[in-house]
């Protein structure tokens, strides 16, 4: 059973539709919408079979039409560049399902409506502070994730992924800004995606 699940993760299945759009619209109204979002992240991955969590941190840049640059700075530097249909890593181009890039971009781009396509969503919010709990609808995905929790105010501040097998990942987003232009090195990175 364990192994089957791991293979399922490898296959990574896509996402499908749901309907709770009204509540999401309310939250989305609070969220800042910008062409560029950038900031830092702290990631903690807790794997049941490891004594210590895997901690890492780095920076990210989201550009509405160009995609995402995700740079892990510590403990092992790596760069991942993603758009709708391509994914580049330090080890060259990798094939990943389109859904992966899309979810990634939806989250970082504050484009929450996109998530209605794949999850049953429970919403709670006090003033500007909101929390979403996403449960996958796809039966095969259900075997992988219990839920994903998102919380934030004008920005997405935290994401928590609870896997079926007890593993847990938390990502905190900090120092979020919306510059009007990309830095030149960011331009160079995105340029690598264009064929």
């Amino acid at each position: 059973m364990r192994l089957k699940l791991t293979l399922l993760t490898l296959l990574w299945f896509g996402i499908c539709q749901a309907q709770t759009e009204d509540e999401l619209n309310q939250i989305s109204a609070h969220l800042s919408q910008a062409t560029i979002t950038q900031g830092a992240f702290q990631q903690q991955k807790q794997l049941k079979f490891l004594r210590n969590p895997l901690n890492s941190n780095g920076t990210f840049v989201y550009h509405q039409s160009k995609g995402v640059i995700w740079k892990t700075l510590s403990p092992v530097p790596s760069t991942v560049i993603i758009n709708d249909n391509r994914l580049l890593t330090d080890q060259g181009e990798q094939a990943v399902p389109a859904a992966f890039g899309k979810v990634f971009q939806a989250l970082l781009g504050n484009n929450l409506n996109f998530l209605t396509e794949g999850f049953t969503i429970a919403v709670s919010h006090h003033d500007a502070v909101w929390q979403l709990q996403l449960e996958p609808k796809e039966p095969l995905l259900k075997k992988l994730f219990l839920h994903i929790k998102l919380s934030g105010d004008q920005e997405l501040r935290q994401m928590e992924l609870e896997e079926f097998n007890g593993n847990q990942t938390q990502i905190h987003f900090e120092h979020i800004t919306h510059p009007s232009e990309l830095a030149s090195e960011q331009e160079v990175d995105f340029a690598r995606l264009s064929p």
Binding site: S56, P75, V80, F104, L161
Partner: peptide
């Protein structure tokens, strides 16, 4: 440590 690691961990 990368986001794709989510699939591998």
């Amino acid at each position: 440590y990368s986001p794709i690691g989510q699939l591998q961990a």
